[in-house]
């Protein structure tokens, strides 16, 4: 069951003098989610374009569902769904008509196409807006319609290129739930994102791209171990409290660092309950924090940590 559904081997893509992808290799086993993490311009979309047959690689090979993306491009396209950064829907047509159109192009009869469209509109909570032109949809609705459009043919592999960029938190959560349901149904997903949190929640494994190169890959836990995980920052009321607070935290097993500009102590922690441990340790010596903050590692922290590692190596 766990044969690779996406397999890129040494994929390089250049545009003139620019190297968008530099010998990138990824493997995604069936029914799992690969999170492709990176800033704008890291090469995420280019890799998606190569894997979805939109762009031929300059060198290297890629197979999706066991089919070569260059030589079997047409067959690959009948096995994949693609949701890009911008909703690829016909603004003039209604939501339903958009889905019917795609089902028909995929080879469904008019009746099958209408049934599938109604099913998906219902499932994606768009039934109320089914007859309205897509141009009247909100951003979140448009994204859902776009995702529905890429699911019409029940694809084996779905590519989601920054599916939640620009969405409000509610719509983002809804999108995450849809992706989780898809994976539950056995679909293989490649998801690109700029948000570590998103990759953390959805991805079985994460590949970090920077300037067209794979700079790290592994599970979310493995990556976080490299990044130095979360931090707790305690802001104190007065400078005089710093040495005592420092000793108290060290006594509780933390390694606080003094930020002289803000009268604050920052320490890496492993779990959110460590926040309580810090508070208790300070309480025992009679110090009350003016401000407490739990810092989640960001993509920048990942990059910083990785840069640090490669500099040390």
């Amino acid at each position: 069951m766990n044969e690779p559904m996406i397999e890129a081997v040494d994929v390089t893509k250049t545009f003139g003098a620019l190297t968008a992808l530099d010998s990138v290799s990824v493997t995604v086993p069936r029914g799992t989610v690969l999170g492709l993490l990176g800033h704008n311009g890291a090469g995420k979309t280019t890799l998606v374009n190569v894997l979805t047959t939109m762009l031929p690689p300059t060198s290297g090979t890629a197979r999706v569902a066991g089919l070569d993306v260059v030589r079997k491009a047409h067959q690959v396209r009948s096995r994949i769904g693609l949701t890009g950064q911008f909703a690829a829907v016909d603004e003039q047509l209604s939501g339903t008509d958009n889905l019917v159109l795609i089902a028909r192009l995929l080879g469904a009869s008019p009746r099958e196409a209408r049934a599938r469209a109604a099913e998906l509109m219902d499932l994606f909570d768009l039934a109320d807006a089914a007859r309205r032109p897509a141009r009247t949809y909100s951003g979140g609705m448009r994204r859902r319609l776009d995702l529905a459009a890429s699911l019409v043919g029940r694809p084996d592999v779905i590519f989601l290129d920054e599916p939640t960029t620009g969405l409000d938190p509610t719509s983002r959560l809804a999108m995450w739930e849809i992706v989780e349901n898809l994976v539950g149904d056995g679909t293989t997903v490649l998801l690109t994102t700029q948000y570590l949190e998103e990759a953390d929640r959805l991805a079985d494994s994460i590949t970090v791209l920077s300037a067209g190169r794979v700079v790290a890959s592994g599970t979310a836990a493995e990556l976080k171990a490299e990044v130095g995980q979360r931090t707790v920052t305690v802001t104190l009321a007065a400078d005089a409290e710093v040495p005592q607070a420092m000793r108290a935290m060290e006594g509780a097993g933390f390694q606080p660092v003094h930020d002289t500009e803000r009268i604050a102590l920052t320490t890496p922690v492993t779990a959110s309950r460590d926040l309580a441990v810090v508070v208790r340790a300070l309480d025992e010596v009679g110090i009350e924090a003016a401000e407490l903050a739990l810092g989640e590692p960001t993509l920048d922290d990942v990059y910083l940590a990785l840069a640090h590692h490669s500099a040390a190596a």
Partner: peptide, 24 residues
């Protein structure tokens, strides 16, 4: 419009499954 998707788990059928159409 802030409608959300219901969180209840879906049955396997509607979202994914064996594709039956392979181009017109």
């Amino acid at each position: 419009m802030t409608s959300t998707l219901t969180a209840e788990p879906r049955t396997a059928e509607p979202l994914a499954g064996p594709s039956t159409w392979h181009g017109s």
